[in-house]
Amino acid sequence: MLRSILIYGLINSIILALTAIGFSLTYGISRVANFAHGALYVLAGFAAWVLFYRLGLNYYLALFLAVVMVALIGAALYRFALIRVRGMPISEIIVTFALGTALLELLRFFGLFGSNYGLPPLRRATLQLSGVPVDFQRVAVVVIGVVLIAALWLFTHYTKVGLAFRAIAQDEQAAMMVGIDPDRMATLSLGLGSALAAIAAVVLLPLGYIAAESGTNILVYAIAVCILGGLESPAGVIVASLLIGYAQILSVAYFGPHYQMIVALLAILVTLVFRPSGLFGRQKELEERV
């Protein structure tokens, strides 16, 4: 029992980190809270399904193309929609939230609910990890999650675009003065954030079904992790994923499956009430009265 909680808790934590990292990255760079995050996640799954089953593409090619498509859609979301309402939080929230809802309901209309659609796993196999059976896909999720996070760290610390991202996240004005175009960066950040949502989708969805309902769930999980860890804080995402991940597994083991969601929702509320900037957030103005 203890061993399986330890192992499945870790897997669950990585899953949460995967779903949240895109949301966090986009917010950190462009200060856009992408409420369409969950919808893009489901869309990526559906796109992969169409490419693989309907068009008969190679499995990996289908996954790759799905990620690219969703990244482009995310970038377009900024380039053609959000750019018009930049700096107006009410409008930004309404636009991303309503687009996300429209997308999810459209997918639901196409029959994307319940267990109608699913993606095959990378490999159908089960491994034994110190006596606990774990299927291959979950192991793959952990490996991909860790690699992805490491790659992102390298990207933001050693590439030109990544450094520009961090510059604009820290001080938009100063970044503009050294010639970084904030609109271009925001477009890229939404593209990258959406791509990360899509990567999460194509590796996580084989564990379940592609359903519109999971769009809202994914959005809530992403928000929970980002709020607890502190929006825009990469370290926060990892720590918060571990905390919520294990809390979820424990509450599901002792109380029942409904509690997975309740834990995430409670995490959001408790954090916002007691420490709105999260564990690692530097949004000082939230704590201060200014």
């Binding site: 809270a33 409904h258 309740i262 409670l266 709105p276």
Partner: peptide
């Protein structure tokens, strides 16, 4: 009330969470 000092997306998130939470709690 506890979330009223929050602004912008933070308040929006709180209000988004509450109906979901109550629904899930009743379900669970």
């Amino acid at each position: 009330a506890p979330c009223l000092p929050l602004r912008g997306i933070y308040f929006a998130m709180t209000t988004l969470v509450y109906p979901l939470l109550l629904a899930r709690a009743i379900e669970a």
